[in-house]
Amino acid sequence: MTAHNWVDLRQHEHAGIETLRAHFEGHAYDPHWHDAYLLGFTEQGVQQFECRRARQHSTPGNVFMLEPGDIHDGHAPSDRGFTYSMLYLKPDWLALELRAWSDEVPATGEPHFPTTLTEDNGLATAIARVVHALRDEEPRVVRQGAIDGLLEHVSGHLSWRLRLAYDPRIPSVAHRARDYLHAHLYDDIGLDELATICGVDRFRLSRVFKASFGLAPHAYLIQLRLTRARQWLAQGTPPAEVAHKLGFADQSHLGRWFRRAYGLTPAHYGKRCTNVPDFASNNL
């Protein structure tokens, strides 16, 4: 991370919502996904990212909306870089809050964003209000009011669907490989071994898997492990222990992948999420 880049991540103790403000110049982070819904807006500059096989350019006031599992990256195409604010919303929390907010929300299915980028000043303002309400430790009534305003604006961008564990458009070999990776998250899996299990050679497996899910099998497995790492770090598990449990060579190996995906170190992430005081923001 360059001297001009910074990341300020916080997790609200009671709401359980992560808020993030960050600034990047040049390359921001590699392709990755989250197990949460991401709602954010660009404050300054041009925020370029690839998502759902399309390149997006978010400018000030634009809102980006990503679902759990949406693979995306980040880059600043201009010299000034970009600054943005973002909320991480847990899927169960968002679904429950939306159903409590309106009786018209279906009782089944998870929220779905048909598009990943929109120009909606009202939604951008609603996101900013939640970020400030949580970070400024506003009274609970103010925080809830901000969240209700967010739900109202988000609802205008949602369609509803049941998430299918099996997508018939994806080749069966890709499904088998993905299911095996999920079931053997902690194992030292070789590409030849995975290809044999799926009944194809490793070259075909890599082509089909990447075409289906946007990442090569090894990169997909790394993302699975990073998602689990975030969960354990947020619970206070030391980075070295997380690295060992997830099959990384050491803490530094975990740290390299973590920073490439999220723009901050595992230790910094853990401190932010467990409310342990950090020493200095420039230690990123």
Rank of each mutant, 00 (worst) to 15 (best):
D8K: 14
L9W: 00
H12V: 00
A15L: 00
G16F: 00
I17T: 05
I17S: 00
T19S: 10
L20T: 05
L20Y: 06
R21Q: 10
R21H: 07
H23L: 04
H23V: 00
F24Q: 04
G26C: 10
A28C: 12
H34Y: 13
L39Q: 11
E43V: 15
Q44R: 15
G45K: 09
V46N: 09
Q48R: 15
F49I: 07
F49Y: 15
C51G: 11
R55D: 01
H57G: 01
H57Q: 12
G61V: 02
M65Y: 05
P68K: 13
I71D: 01
D73Y: 06
G74H: 09
G74C: 08
G74T: 08
S78M: 15
D79N: 13
G81N: 12
T83P: 05
S85I: 00
S85F: 01
L87I: 01
D92I: 01
A95S: 12
E97W: 04
R99S: 06
D103N: 14
E104G: 11
P106M: 07
P106S: 05
T108G: 12
P114M: 10
T115W: 11
T116M: 14
E119P: 05
N121K: 10
G122C: 02
A124K: 07
I127F: 00
A133E: 10
E137S: 12
E138R: 15
E138H: 15
P139L: 06
V141C: 10
R143N: 03
D148A: 14
G149K: 07
L150D: 07
E152I: 03
E152D: 14
H153A: 15
V154W: 02
G156K: 07
H157A: 06
L158A: 06
L158Y: 09
S159L: 06
W160K: 07
W160S: 02
R161P: 02
L164E: 14
P168V: 13
I170A: 10
P171V: 12
H175M: 09
R176S: 08
A177P: 13
R178Q: 12
Y180N: 00
Y180L: 08
L181K: 07
H182K: 06
H184E: 03
Y186V: 09
D187T: 05
D188V: 05
D188T: 08
L194Q: 04
C198T: 09
S206F: 08
V208D: 15
V208N: 12
V208W: 13
F209D: 13
S212Q: 13
F213S: 10
A216Y: 15
P217C: 11
H218E: 14
Y220D: 11
L221C: 04
I222A: 13
I222S: 09
R225P: 03
L226C: 02
T227K: 11
R228T: 14
R230G: 08
W232R: 10
W232S: 07
A234D: 06
A234F: 02
Q235K: 06
T237Y: 04
P238M: 04
A240N: 01
V242T: 07
H244C: 03
H244F: 06
K245V: 05
G255C: 01
G255Q: 09
R256W: 01
R259I: 07
R260S: 13
A261Q: 03
G263H: 05
L264E: 06
L264I: 00
T265W: 04
Y269L: 06
C273L: 06
T274I: 02
F279I: 13
F279Y: 14
A280M: 09
S281Y: 10
N283A: 12
L284S: 12
